[in-house]
């Protein structure tokens, strides 16, 4: 009897983990693009996700009534934020040493985190109501529809992004820049414009993933810390490569997250996630699937 129960719980936990991983992939993809293509270290990536979650929260309670609709606005808003961030800050940092990039983006961390604190206060803002906040049963396994939706949208977006990077002219230029910026610039591509667009796309992905995460999770001003480290950990595991690499790494972290909090202790998940991160850095500094 215990065996059967445990089996069900294990499968249930794995299902949760797969869905988490699907969403994490989208959150990490923006970071990977920016780091890979423009070689920009954005330490504040998690804080931007946090901001996207707050904006989703704000839009849902004031305008849509349902966070599912919010990507209509968060994607363009965050593309705009990306463009502004690039013009205001990143542009000066592209050629700067990594230490300066980290320092400046840590400044953004301080700024955004406290801005959120000033505007939304520190208490967690719970996800606004979505019509998908219900679940279906598949035998003994429960599938929450809000998470399922987030996962499906995320995977679908990644497939499109993959096509974009493989097929479109801009996408190919971005991929090429990830390999060798000098060569791309010699071939007559305007790298400034390329980096600008990359930052915009990266942030648009952040906007979407923030909206998706917000359909089932609460946000606090310190949420950025969690997502920042988590997405960097995914990029570390994936190496700077492909959409597929990011996806595989995200699934691994999603599973680790879910198994740690489901089977061990909800308070221990950070130990597992970040411990895994440090181990990856030590043992596979180039990542599992990376080219660099």
């Amino acid at each position: 009897m215990v065996g059967v129960d445990f089996g069900v719980q294990l499968i249930q936990t794995i299902v949760f983990g797969l869905m988490l991983g699907g969403v994490y992939a989208l959150a990490a993809m923006g970071l990977s693009l920016l780091f890979g293509v423009a070689n920009l270290v954005n330490f504040a990536h998690g804080e931007y996700i946090m901001l996207a979650m707050y904006i989703t929260y704000f839009l849902s309670i004031s305008l849509f009534g349902d966070p599912v609709l919010s990507p209509i606005l968060t994607i363009p808003i965050f593309f705009g934020i990306g463009v502004l961030t690039y013009l205001g800050i990143f542009k000066r940092l592209v050629k700067a040493p990594p230490l300066s990039q980290i320092a400046a983006t840590v400044g953004i961390v301080v700024l955004l985190r406290n801005l959120a604190l000033a505007v939304w206060a520190a208490e967690p803002k719970a996800p606004p109501y979505t019509v998908f906040a219900t679940s279906v049963n598949v035998g003994p396994i429960i599938i929450p529809l809000d998470k399922l939706l987030a996962t499906v949208v995320s995977v679908f977006t990644l497939i499109i992004l993959n096509q974009f990077l493989e097929k479109s002219k801009l996408g190919i230029a971005m991929k090429a820049a990830a390999d060798d910026v000098e060569a791309v610039s010699l071939m007559g591509v305007d790298t400034g414009r390329l980096f600008l667009l990359t930052t915009g796309i990266s942030m648009a992905l952040v906007g979407l993933s923030g909206s998706l995460i917000m359909t089932y999770q609460a946000v606090t001003p310190t949420s950025g810390l969690l997502f920042g480290l988590l997405t960097w950990a995914i990029v570390a595991l994936a190496g700077l490569g492909t959409v597929k690499g990011i996806f595989a790494a995200s699934i691994i972290f999603g599973l680790a997250d879910s198994l740690a909090s489901g089977l061990w202790d909800a308070r221990g998940r950070e130990i597992v996630l970040y411990g895994l991160f440090i181990l990856i850095l030590w043992l596979r500094p180039k990542g599992l699937f990376g080219r660099r």
Partner: peptide
């Protein structure tokens, strides 16, 4: 191990930040 494996720049920064959170949770448990 970090210096042994040549962890530098952003990776060093991130792993040292992760240390803060790992220790916090360890002592919480």
């Amino acid at each position: 191990p970090s210096f042994r494996f040549g962890i530098r720049e952003v990776w060093y920064a991130l792993s040292s930040l992760a240390l803060v959170l790992i220790l916090q949770k360890i002592f919480l448990l």
